[in-house]
Write a protein that binds this DNA or RNA. Structure first.
Length: 435
RNA sequence: GGAGGAUUACCCAAGUGGCUUAAGGGAACGGUCUUGAAAACCGUCAGGCGGGUUCUGCUCGCGCGUGGGUUCAAAUCCCACAUCCUCCUCCA
């Protein structure tokens, strides 16, 4: 959430910044107008309350001395009515203001490439030449099916489109990948967490998914009354329970920066992406992801963003997967982010890079929504900055390994870093059928 | 899912409508004493958010789990919800 005071004081600047994210100037005019009315009403109400408090003290004193106070009581009755009216108006204005504010994205950083969509993203650096083959590489979904380690048909039968079974060496590979990630992240100083995978609406609002992106997630309903949603949503990313761990907390300054990592399933409705990436592991309703989250002081957050990206890059480098780093444009970056770098891994069969990690500095945007604060040496409270990044998306990593490490005979060479995690297995060969 | 009980500061806890500007104790912090420490004694210790402002100060409002309500006036009375505890039921 943006700070209304910042918008109020720097209206022209705010309009210009948010225009690059597709927000119309009229929205901000409307916002500051409501804010002005609200503050006016607060001022009036509080004057009356001060008056009422004085009168109440006088009434109490009179009563104690057994004197009559009925005139003062009658006078206060009308004041009380006015206060009630003003307070109702204030809460209506406050909720209008909140509704508008909750739907405004974060201010983009000055360094963000300006543009409405991903075509304005800028490549920052590239690691390793893209993989070449002396045969035509297969897509990971074909490799997975031929090896009988990924089963799309039975997942479609059991759950529907965009679900998959991992089997045998496939399941082992998935497990090897996430255990490798968790171990590496822990070595890099992140504390491992196993969070809840269902969270309440306050948490979804705290990290910025609600109210704007309700249609992107799965919310649990009451079985006795399916029209009634329960206050529980399947997490679309571990970022939600990790960041909300700190919600409404005051952190000791010396604890910062805090680094946490978690493996979790991620559930996404993929509303609006019909027809895109319909095959393979790229776009699933349910996938596993290892997430990294940082909570830090404002002055550290840009440096911490660099560290976060390097932590994610380190994983791809150890796996030997070619990738590049892309700075997202103002229009492509996520709602909560001031600056986002995507890591895109090379997918040979598709002959292009695909997103495998998204590393963002959310500045104080989530901290203000979620009230994540710290007390520093000066004894004062400050909003923290929050950062998040995938480290990494597990299914997409498996897809990249299958495609980049495939051999002409259809087997997969296991990346060296994963061999210990695969119980010494160096090559994935065709599984025997279960049925 | 059912029945009871609870929720006040870092911890324990008093407080059943107006002299509560929320008692008291412990912890913590500062000081006196001491070579140093302990003890004793003295002091500080109810957070924070919001409004106004001539702006690092002053002032007003709100703050006793959360949100409503009653009242001239609510920690205190009423309603709803959340969380925790005990018991029953169910359960990996």
């Amino acid at each position: 959430m943006l700070d209304i005071k910042v918008i109020r004081k720097n209206l022209a600047w705010a309009k210009e910044k948010l225009a690059t994210r597709g927000i119309k100037a009229a929205k901000l005019d409307q916002l500051v107008e409501i804010d002005a009315k609200r503050r006016q009403a607060i001022s009036e109400s509080e004057q009356l309350k001060a008056q009422r408090n004085d009168a109440s003290a006088a009434i109490a004193a009179a009563k104690r001395q057994k004197q009559d106070a009925s005139a003062a009581i009658a006078a206060m009755r009308t004041v009380g009515g006015k206060i009630k009216q003003l307070d109702a108006a204030i809460s209506e204005l406050a909720s209008q203001q909140q509704d508008l504010l909750l739907r405004l994205p974060n201010f983009p950083a000055d360094s963000d490439p300006i543009g409405p969509d991903e075509s304005y993203n800028e490549e920052v650096r590239k690691w390793h030449e893209t993989t070449t083959f002396n045969f035509k590489p297969l897509a990971h979904w074909d490799l997975g099916t031929k090896l009988d380690i990924l089963d799309w048909d039975r997942a479609a039968k059991v759950s529907g489109a965009r679900f998959v079974y991992y089997k045998g060496a496939g399941a082992l590979l998935e497990r090897a990948v996430f255990n490798f990630f968790l171990d590496e992240n822990t070595k890099a100083g992140y504390t491992e967490i196993i969070p809840p995978y269902l969270v309440n609406d306050h948490s979804m609002q705290g990290t910025g998914q609600f109210p704007k992106f309700r249609e992107d997630v799965y919310t649990i309903v009451d079985n006795d009354d399916p029209d009634k949603p329960l206050d529980l949503t399947l997490i679309p990313t571990a970022e939600v329970p990790l960041v909300n761990y700190f919600r409404n907390e005051i952190i000791h300054g010396e604890k910062l920066p805090i680094n946490v990592t978690a493996l979790s399933p991620a559930f996404r409705s993929e509303a609006g992406s019909a027809g895109r990436d319909t095959r393979g592991l790229i776009r699933m309703h349910e996938f596993r992801k290892v997430e990294m989250v940082k909570v830090c002081r404002p002055e550290e957050s840009w440096n911490e963003l660099d560290k976060l990206i390097h932590n994610a890059e380190h994983l791809l480098q150890k796996l030997g997967l070619p990738y590049h780093v892309v700075a997202l444009s103002t229009g492509d970056a996520s709602f909560t982010s001031a600056k986002t770098f995507d890591l895109e891994v090379w997918m040979p069969a598709q002959d292009k890079y695909r997103e495998i990690s998204s590393c963002s500095n959310c500045t104080d945007f989530q901290a203000r929504r979620a009230q994540i604060r710290y007390r520093d040496d000066d004894g004062k409270l400050h909003l923290a900055h929050t950062l998040n990044g995938s480290g990494l998306a597990v299914g997409r990593t498996v897809a990249a390994i299958l495609e980049n490490y495939q051999n002409q005979d259809g087997t997969i060479t296991v990346p060296e870093a994963l061999v210990p995690y695969m119980n010494g297995m160096t090559k994935i060969v065709k599984e025997t059928s279960l049925i």
